[in-house]
Amino acid sequence: MAVQTRPATSGMSKRQRAKIGRGVQYTVLLAVVIVAALLADWGRLQEQLFNLEVARALFPTVLTTALLNTVLYTALGFAFGLGLALVLALMRMSSVAPYRWISGAYIEFFRGLPALLVFLSVGIGIPTAFNDVSFSRNVTVMLALGIVGSAYMAETIRAGIKAVPNGQLEAARSLGMSHGRATVTVVIPQAFRIILPPLTNELILLTKDSSLVFVLATTLAQQELTQFGRAAMTTYPGMTPILVVGLCYLVITIPLSVLQQRLERRFGPDGR
């Protein structure tokens, strides 16, 4: 007599149920999209958000002044911050205890403060308190952004240096390099490869933090993206300026991400 086969469960198989589940999910999605499309007031949306006339009026100043200033401020802040962070990281690992304390205190202090407060101190507080001290706009932004960024980057760099295998330092020392020489020639270049992703992160954060320049008095020629967008909102109806300015930020940050991925691939599995 033939052996009878018996279904594992009564009714539908597991595969059938999964299929139906997926079908339901697609149906819900489609329904939401259709309802949204029917309810939306497309004319009004276009006028308020994607107003081409307003967008056109913003060009080319949004690029030649605002975007350029954002890039400039970020670059200044990042360069200063990175240099300061490297010094802080090396101080934090110094054999001289007071250096470690100073660096540790600096990092804890500025990591804990809102960036806005630092901008206010450097841009307004210091010039008010000390009449004879005043910085140009570029220097103010460089200091403020750099101080904020360096507190974070110092810890990132320190982590990177610690992640370089000790054998690298031993090999360099065995070849007669002093500790300092070995650190500069062998350890730091490798540390920077390791911390490329978090460092890119920091650069992108600084790009956005550069918008805090808005708390300082600026001339038209010194406006960066956010300030520019805000000013344009008072001139033009709707929120198209914000959308344009927002896209401009992406024009900066997305290429940075791509660059990071390229560099990582180049140094990545082959480099270590």
Binding site: P165, E170, A171, S174, V186, P189, G271
Partner: peptide, 12 residues
């Protein structure tokens, strides 16, 4: 001269 078990070539 020193030769290491893990080679320790400068990877960069």
């Amino acid at each position: 001269g020193m030769v290491f078990q893990q080679f320790n070539l400068f990877s960069h």
